[in-house]
Computed example of a mutant assay.
Amino acid sequence: MDDKERLNILHRPWVAPFNWGLMIYKGASKEVICGFQYENEIIIPAFYKEFLEIINGCFLYDMSLFGIIESFTRSFLQCHSLQTANVYWKNSFKVDKTFFILADLLIVMKKM
Rank of each mutant, 00 (worst) to 15 (best):
M1F: 02
M1G: 04
D2N: 02
R6A: 00
L7T: 05
L7G: 07
N8A: 01
N8E: 04
N8D: 01
I9V: 08
L10W: 07
L10I: 03
L10P: 03
H11D: 06
R12H: 15
P13C: 11
P13Y: 14
P13K: 12
A16E: 02
F18N: 10
F18I: 11
F18M: 14
W20H: 15
W20Y: 13
W20S: 14
M23F: 11
M23P: 05
I24H: 02
I24K: 00
I24M: 06
K26V: 00
K26G: 03
G27V: 05
A28C: 10
S29L: 14
V32E: 00
I33H: 05
C34V: 08
F36P: 10
Q37C: 05
Q37V: 03
Q37E: 07
Y38T: 08
Y38M: 08
Y38W: 09
E39D: 06
E39C: 06
E39G: 04
I42D: 12
I43D: 09
I44N: 06
I44L: 15
I44M: 11
P45K: 15
A46P: 00
F47E: 00
F47S: 03
K49N: 09
K49C: 06
K49W: 14
E50R: 01
E50L: 08
E53N: 08
E53C: 08
I54K: 09
I55Y: 02
G57Q: 07
C58P: 01
F59Q: 01
L60F: 13
L60R: 10
D62F: 13
M63S: 11
S64F: 04
S64D: 05
S64M: 06
L65V: 12
L65S: 10
F66I: 00
F66D: 00
G67E: 14
G67N: 13
I68F: 13
I68C: 12
E70C: 10
E70F: 08
S71K: 13
S71P: 12
S71G: 15
T73Q: 03
R74I: 15
S75R: 11
L77F: 14
L77K: 15
L77N: 15
Q78W: 08
Q78V: 08
C79L: 04
S81G: 02
S81I: 03
L82I: 11
T84W: 14
T84I: 09
T84G: 06
A85F: 10
A85M: 11
N86T: 11
V87Q: 12
Y88V: 12
Y88P: 06
W89E: 10
W89Y: 15
K90C: 08
K90F: 09
N91V: 15
N91F: 14
N91P: 15
F93A: 09
F93T: 14
V95L: 04
D96N: 03
D96G: 03
F99W: 14
F100V: 04
L102Q: 05
A103H: 09
D104Y: 06
D104W: 05
L105K: 11
L105Y: 08
L105A: 12
L105M: 08
I107M: 07
V108R: 13
M109T: 09
